[in-house]
């Protein structure tokens, strides 16, 4: 009888153990699932604050849910007058090298010392007017009231020895139908470093320019005397004692049966790039 009792107890023990095992297996899954759902709910129920400043300087703060948010509206900030900071050729070349190296481009708010959007648009208009006055661009480019403007401030998410704010560039786009002007302004210096103007004006296609046009496009740089060249369809000029180079290119764009568009491009580049080799005295 004692043995029978032991046998029965053993059987019930087995069943209990198996039931417990099954319960743990199923219950464990349900518990895990519930944990995951709760994690999701906790994440979704929070409110967060982020300051979209320069890349690498973002701050992320969770706001207590339903807690004491600052109800006082922020006072509108007065835009400080932008004076711009002049950069030497070497620094400009360094910045250009970083951008040419590529990386993740990030939009951000202007930081201290950088121009705002309004200032960037204003600087763009002034540049266009100046280029028209210098005879670099046709008068159509200066009719700034007719353009539709858009702008964005970008920087690169890369480690560099340069000050973070020096990497930021304003991309300003002026659109008028098929015509388009894209300018790249350095956010700290306020200068135009790159321009691509696409117009229907045939003036763009007839005027002949040599490398001496580039000092007029980039008046903030000191051109090296007699140091210019034409390679294929691109004209180059040396600046700041060879620390920088400027380039100019012209092209005609034909899309189906529409009126042709004429594009001129101006840009700065560091002199070590493979595409050029500027030889002193080898002008056009």
């Amino acid at each position: 009888m004692k043995k029978d009792r032991e046998i029965r107890r053993g059987k019930w023990g087995n069943r209990a153990a198996l039931a417990l095992c099954l319960g743990l297996t199923l219950g464990g899954w349900l518990f895990t699932r519930q944990l995951l759902i709760r994690q999701e709910e906790a994440f979704l129920n929070q409110e967060y604050l982020a300051a979209l400043s320069l890349p690498g300087e973002e701050t992320w703060e969770p706001i207590p849910f339903g807690g004491e948010a600052d109800q006082q509206q922020a006072q509108p900030q007065r835009e400080a007058a932008f004076s711009g900071r002049e950069l030497d050729g070497g620094t400009v070349a360094e910045i250009l090298k970083v951008w040419r190296g590529g990386g993740r481009e990030l939009l951000h708010e202007p930081a201290a010392g950088q121009m705002t959007m309004e200032q960037a648009l204003e600087a763009s208009r002034r540049w266009l007017d100046e280029m028209v006055r210098q005879g670099v661009l046709p008068p159509e480019a200066g009719e700034t009231g007719e353009w539709q403007y858009s702008a964005s401030l970008q920087s690169l998410d890369r480690e560099t020895d340069l000050d973070r704010e020096l990497l930021s560039l304003w991309q300003v786009t002026c659109q008028r139908g098929a015509e388009r002007i894209e300018l790249t302004l350095h956010a700290v210096s306020g200068h135009v470093w790159q321009a691509q103007v696409t117009l229907q004006s045939s003036w763009m296609g007839t005027e002949d320019f040599d490398w001496e046009i580039l000092p007029r496009v980039f008046p903030f740089l000191e051109a090296d005397e007699g140091r210019g060249a034409r390679i294929d369809e691109t004209v180059y000029c040396s600046f700041e004692k060879g620390t920088l180079a400027g380039a100019f290119q012209r092209a005609q764009i034909q899309i189906d049966q529409e009126e042709p568009l004429y594009r001129v491009s101006f840009w700065l580049l560091p002199p070590e790039t493979e595409e050029i080799s500027v030889r002193q005295g080898e002008g056009q």
Partner: peptide, 20 residues
């Protein structure tokens, strides 16, 4: 609008019209 500030952005999750 009470949470929003200039120079900063607030972000949160909310259910609107049956979608999150």
């Amino acid at each position: 609008t009470g949470l929003a500030r200039e120079g900063e952005v607030v972000y949160l999750f909310r259910s609107l019209g049956g979608r999150t």
